[in-house]
Computed example of a mutant assay.
Amino acid sequence: MRVGLVVYGDLDTRSGGYVYDRQLVDHLRELGDEVELFSLPERRYGRAFAQNVDRSFRRRLRAADLDVLLEDELCHPSLLWTNRRLDFDAPVVALVHHLRSAERHAPWKNGFYRRVERQYLRGVDGYVYNSETTRSTVAALAEPSPGVVAYPAGDRFGGALSPETVRERARTPTLRVVTLGNVTPRKGIHTLVEGLERTRGDWTLTVVGDDAADSAYTAFLRQRIKRLGVAGSVSFTGRLADDDVADVLARSHVLAMPSTYEGFGIAYLEGMAFGLPAVATTAGGAAELVTDRVNGLLVEPDDPSAVTDALAPLCRNRERLVRLSLAALDRYRSHPTWRETAETVQGFLRSLA
C-alpha cells in the first residue's frame, strides 16, 4: 500500500503529535507499506489559507499514485480547498490529535476555528483518532465515521524500568518533577511552578522541551520563576535527543503537565514507562489513561492549589509515591505498543483503499 502523509515542517524536529506521526511512518514502513511525506511550510494560521492555491502541491499529490492520503489535521487551514480540487481516486483520511477549536481561545476565535475545522472535516473520507475524546470532539462538528481510534504508545525509549529500580529511586530525599513537551502556554508550566512553590518539602523541576517554540511565553515563565524565588529549583534543558530524555525520565519521580487541554497526552504514557505517575489535566483525553489516585493525579487546568495538593503528599509520603509509580508501570505495560498502533491504522487504511 502506498500511503502519503501531509505534515507541516520536519517530522524529526518536533514533539507531541509529531511523535505520533513519526512513529506511525516508521512502523508502517516496517510493516511493508511505502510512505511518502509531503511537507508544507508552517505559517501563521491566517497565512496558511494561501497555500490552498498552490497548484504544484496538488500536482505532486496526484503524481504520487497513492492508495490513501493521510493528513495531519493540524494542517487543515492549508488543505481546506486543496482537498476539494485534488481530483484523484485515493481516499483522504484526517489524522486528528486534537482540534484547535477544543483549545482555550477567545470565544470569537473558537467560533471561527470551529467553522473552518467543520468544513475541513466534512471534506475528508475518514478519520484516525488518538483517543475516544478526540473522536467525540470531531463528532460535534462532523460525522465521525468511518474512523478508528488508534492510541499513541509510550515505548519509543525502549522497555519499562523494573519495579526494584522504581522502589530504590523513591528513596531519594528530593522529589524530582519533570515536564515534557514544547514550552507553550497550553502546557500549563506556569501553573505547575506556582503549585510547586507552595509545596512544603524539597523538590526540583526539570522542563524538557523546546523553549524557543514560544519565546514570549518562555520569557514570561522565567520572570515568574525568578519572582517566586524558585530559580534554583527549576532547570530548562531545551530540546534533547531521545537518549537524553530517557535519562532525565529515569532519574525523575513524577511527570507533571497540567495543560489547559490534551487530546490524549503521549508524554504521560512515556513517563509511565519509567514508573512516573502523571499529574495530568482533566481537560481532554488524559483521563482515558490516568486513573486519579491510582496511577496518577488529575487536576483542573489553571489551578496551582490543585497541583500543590497533588504533589505535596508525594514529598512526604514515599510509600504513596511507590504505590502510584508501580501502578503507572502496570498501566504502561497494558497499553498498545507503537507497532500495534500502526497495525490498527494500517488495517483501517486498507479497508478504505
Rank of each mutant, 00 (worst) to 15 (best):
A170T: 03
S215G: 10
V207H: 03
P163N: 10
L180I: 10
L228T: 04
V7S: 07
P185E: 07
R333G: 05
P277R: 03
D330H: 10
A342Q: 09
E71A: 15
R29G: 12
A286M: 08
V322S: 03
H98W: 09
C75N: 14
E168K: 09
S215I: 09
D67L: 12
V3I: 15
K109D: 08
D243W: 11
D89Y: 03
Y8A: 05
G46S: 11
R171Q: 11
I225S: 03
R169D: 12
D211E: 10
L95T: 03
D211R: 04
T218S: 12
L24R: 04
V7P: 05
L121S: 06
R47T: 07
R251M: 06
L269G: 00
L69K: 06
A90L: 11
T179S: 12
P107Q: 00
S131N: 13
V294W: 05
D243C: 02
D87C: 05
Y8F: 15
R323S: 15
H98Q: 13
T165C: 07
L70C: 07
D54V: 08
E270V: 11
G229W: 11
L24G: 05
G195R: 05
A278P: 02
R114D: 04
E132S: 13
R176K: 14
L86V: 07
L37R: 11
R293H: 13
G154A: 12
R156L: 14
G285E: 08
A150R: 02
V128S: 05
A140C: 01
V294F: 09
R29S: 08
L70E: 02
R22Y: 06
Q223H: 12
V7L: 13
H76P: 02
A306W: 01
P313N: 10
D242A: 14
A310D: 05
L326H: 02
Y261L: 13
G284N: 13
